[in-house]
């Protein structure tokens, strides 16, 4: 299975590098020499990677591939995307509070009860207040305020 994953990575790498070569080669436009050199280097390296992955015979490859636990991490990806979407609309501080609460509750290995939820909300509130003190009052960062705070 690992060898097939290595082969897929090699092919994906070639496709990305080839895309960058094409993108770095606009017709008769100066200023693209170095990006083109880098993209070609990447393409050559990817080709060697593919050559090693598709080499006939018994191939021993570094054990550097782990499967992506999408089943576990997808809620965090949703939380991060939600943060990116909501922060300019709801406000940075309120979204931060929600992100902390959501992460702590979704990934808690323990069973959720009222006490646990109250504890998480209290910790998230303390954390958000600390952020406000640190960034807004101490460092003078002007956070974009929106619907909430």
């Amino acid at each position: 299975m690992t060898i097939w994953k290595q082969r897929i990575i090699a092919i994906a790498s070639i496709l990305v590098a080839a895309g960058l070569v094409v993108w770095s080669s606009p017709e008769a436009r100066p200023g693209y020499e170095f990006p083109r050199m880098v993209a070609w280097t990447m393409l050559v390296l990817s080709a060697v990677l593919a050559l090693m992955a598709f080499k006939p015979g018994k191939v021993v490859i570094p054990a550097d591939i782990e499967s992506v636990p999408m089943r576990i991490i997808w809620p965090m990806l949703v939380i991060l995307a939600g943060m990116a979407y909501l922060a300019p609309r709801l406000g940075f501080l309120s979204t931060s509070f929600l992100v902390f609460v959501a992460t702590a509750l979704v990934f808690s290995p323990d069973r959720l009860g009222v006490r646990r939820i109250a504890l998480v909300v209290a910790i998230a509130a303390c954390f958000t207040v600390s952020l406000y003190l640190l960034f807004v009052l101490l460092l003078g960062v002007q956070l974009p305020r929106a619907l909430l705070f």
Binding site: F100, A102, A104, F107, S108, P109, A124, F127
Partner: peptide
Amino acid sequence: EYMAGAVAV
């Protein structure tokens, strides 16, 4: 899970 939330924010 607290660490993850704090680091993300």
